[in-house]
């Protein structure tokens, strides 16, 4: 039996304020999948990702990454994951090279491994001219590229991208889509959240919709296209919105 890349069972996350962001969430992501994680703002997408990656503590439930318990054996689990978060979480006075290199260091890569990998990623994301610039000096699109390069520096088996194309221009978005498809074709498992349905439709093989902290629909992408209106209609129905809104918006 194949070990899932992500196995979440009955995840619950309540904040100290009492807010329950995720309740009884269970889902699986298979190895090699390109998994779309959809939901409205505040639905629990980022919280779920934070629980998987260790940014948030888990109130109850189980999370396994390729069979490794993400709470009990967190160090082994985390080396398998690369995260590109929704918000920029970097030392803004550090240079592009430092940001990517330090992340490689945290993951235990030696100097030679880091040099080769950092050079490759800086070139791949067209950051060579900006390598010595401080993060705060970069434009929004360039910042997003740095965050993606940082997520990939240790060549993780599982890549988690939380709205990676928010605020980036069309060229970068298309380039990024191509690159993500290449990575997925090479066998990397990708979990992607996005508010762009077109992006999910184009890239993902499996889709899950979360609303109110629970998975309300999950299945192969094709299942979301069995009725007229496609993914947009299926998404709005799953999240409890009136479908007429979509039609009015389209008109």
């Amino acid at each position: 039996m194949t070990v899932p890349a992500i196995n979440i069972e009955h995840l619950r996350k309540a904040y100290r304020t009492g807010t329950v962001a995720v309740q009884d969430l269970s889902m699986q992501v298979q190895p090699g999948d390109f998994f779309g994680f959809l939901g409205p703002n505040g639905a629990g997408k980022s919280t779920t990702i934070h629980c998987i990656t260790g940014i948030a503590t888990v109130t109850s439930g189980k999370i396994e990454i390729f069979g490794v318990d993400a709470v009990k054996n967190y160090r082994e689990a985390r080396r398998l994951i690369g995260l590109s978060p929704q918000e920029f979480n970097v030392d803004t006075f550090a240079t592009v090279t430092q940001i990517v290199d330090w992340m490689g260091g945290y993951f235990g890569m030696n100097a030679a491994q880091r040099k080769s990998r950092v050079d490759m990623l800086i070139q791949r994301f067209d950051l060579t001219a900006h390598a010595k610039k401080q993060f705060r000096e970069l434009s929004g699109g360039l910042k997003r590229r740095v965050i993606l390069a940082r997520a990939l520096v240790h060549d993780p088996k599982l890549l988690i991208l939380d709205e990676p194309t928010a605020g980036v221009d069309v060229e970068l978005r298309l380039d990024l889509w191509r690159y993500l498809q290449e990575l997925n074709a090479e066998g990397k498992t990708i979990l992607l959240t996005s508010h762009y349905l077109e992006e999910i439709e184009r890239l993902c093989k499996t889709i899950a919709v979360i609303a109110g902290g629970k998975i309300v629909r999950q299945g192969p992408k094709e299942d979301f296209f069995t009725v007229p209106g496609g993914l947009e209609k299926a998404y709005l129905e799953a999240t409890g919105h009136k479908v007429e809104h979509a039609a009015a918006g389209a008109a």
Partner: peptide, 11 residues
């Protein structure tokens, strides 16, 4: 600046 998250997600 939230870059504590860099070390939180690392092993």
């Amino acid at each position: 600046l939230r870059y504590i998250e860099e070390t939180l997600v690392a092993p």
